[in-house]
């Protein structure tokens, strides 16, 4: 069977592809925003799978541990610290987009991208 890290990489790739598909082809603006949040989650998952170490330990340094042994088989903590902020960034971008979508709905009365963002002067 393929190991966990490769499977997790494939899942993050498929999340990014699903998100890109939704961003291009779906016409409903809320679904487009959901698709874009999938891309964000896919990128975060990608960063965490890079930090994984097969049958390693969780990167929490307890007092008694020997640093040499800890460095050799703990998962790499740096990307995990980065993903903490980037999850929050993804959520805040989503919130701003949903707010604009609500205003656009109030203005145009429909959720389909062609009507809202469609090109008038064409």
């Amino acid at each position: 069977m393929i190991n966990t890290q490769l499977a997790a990489l494939l899942t993050s790739g498929s999340f990014i592809i699903i998100g890109l598909y939704a961003a291009i082809f779906l016409d409903n603006i809320i679904k487009k925003i959901i698709g874009l949040s999938f891309i964000e989650e896919g990128a975060n998952l990608f960063l965490i799978t890079l930090a994984y170490r097969a049958d390693g330990i969780v990167p929490i340094f307890l007092s008694g541990m020997n640093p040499q042994w800890f460095a050799e088989n703990s998962a790499y903590p740096l990307p995990q610290a980065l993903v903490l902020t980037s999850i929050v960034i993804g959520a805040s971008t989503l919130a701003v987009m949903l707010a604009i979508a609500m205003v656009l709905y109030k203005k145009h009365g429909s959720l389909s991208t062609d009507e809202i963002l469609g090109d008038k002067n064409e």
């Binding site: 890109l20 961003a23 291009i24 991208t113 963002l117 469609g118 090109d119 002067n121 064409e122």
Partner: peptide, 13 residues
Amino acid sequence: QNDSLDRMTFYVI
């Protein structure tokens, strides 16, 4: 290069 979103996303991808 007009402002419609689909044309822009097409060129971006």
